[in-house]
Design a protein around this nucleic acid. Sequence first.
DNA 1: TGCAGGATGTGA
DNA 2: CACATCCTGCAA
Length: 189
Amino acid sequence: MKVIKRRFFDNSTEDVAKLLLGKLIVKGPFVGRIVETEAYLSDDPASHSFRGKTHRNAAMFSDPGTSYVYFTYGMYYCFNVVCGPKGRGEAVLIRAVEPLKGTELMKKNRKRDDLISLCNGPAKFCLAFGIDKRHNFLNLLSKKSEIFLAEDNFKVSEIKSSKRIGISAGKDLPLRFFIGGCRFVSRKN
DNA sequence: TGCAGGATGTGA
DNA sequence: CACATCCTGCAA
């Protein structure tokens, strides 16, 4: 299993959001293929970093390849990959993952049996993988980390894009990216 | 098949 | 008081 290199993040945040499609995310027994992402940019009213650095969003301003996990709606976590350059406050939200390994434990964590809807949403993915605030501010580019990102030979057939889901603030830029025809995305359009 | 509503912590 | 969500229940 080849860990993703730091150079990967020399691309724009938007491009990283696309390039992450098909890559693997690994946490202990869990492996998933990233099939849906959203980019959050600087100067973006929908981004948590828009109003500057706070205790909550501090990880967003750290090195590219760092995790940013935030708590939302009083009960859910969402997982982001910080993008560079350091200090800009940009990140990619992991919205959906195809469950590959550890699926039985994921089903327990989710209290659901259906493979398709195990990780097809940002909070569902975190529940299934057991991700919470302990996993904020991790280096995702090291195998020694509890969570890391890995390369894979998987060929992404087609990258589709759309408006981001669940945000009212800001513009409706096409900053959501997903694998066309994939059954594990949260929405097919 | 679709949508309103509730659960409920945190920062603006 | 709005929020980068999810699930249930009830209406059509």
